[in-house]
Amino acid sequence: MPSSTPEVPGTYVFDVAQSNRGYALNRLCGSLKDAANRERFSADEAAYCDAYGLSPEQREAILQRDWTRMLDLGGSIFYVFKLAVLDKKSMQDLGGIFTGMTTEEFVKALNAGGRSFG
């Protein structure tokens, strides 16, 4: 039998099923690497979402900037991050959000040697 998707608590492992599930959402976020698309998105976010065939849940997660839900719905952090950058959010801001900390607390944890597990 082949291996199976690693299961590590507290960790998203982006596999083919997730990729399939998050395909439209990741395509939308990835498109934001182009300046012209960023402008079109900012001008009318809802219309931009409609053009990418998101599921209703994905659409809501993007419009509400529910970052954790984006990942739960198949988002890949490297795609989703392009939307965060548009919002002038850093990876540290997202780290705080994912872990229920303020950005300052999250940065402090990193500066103190990072968070350790197990």
Binding site: T11, I77, G114, R115
Partner: peptide, 10 residues
């Protein structure tokens, strides 16, 4: 980068 373990360093 993501999930409850974001910020992990080992």
């Amino acid at each position: 980068l993501a999930g409850a373990r974001a910020g992990l360093i080992n």
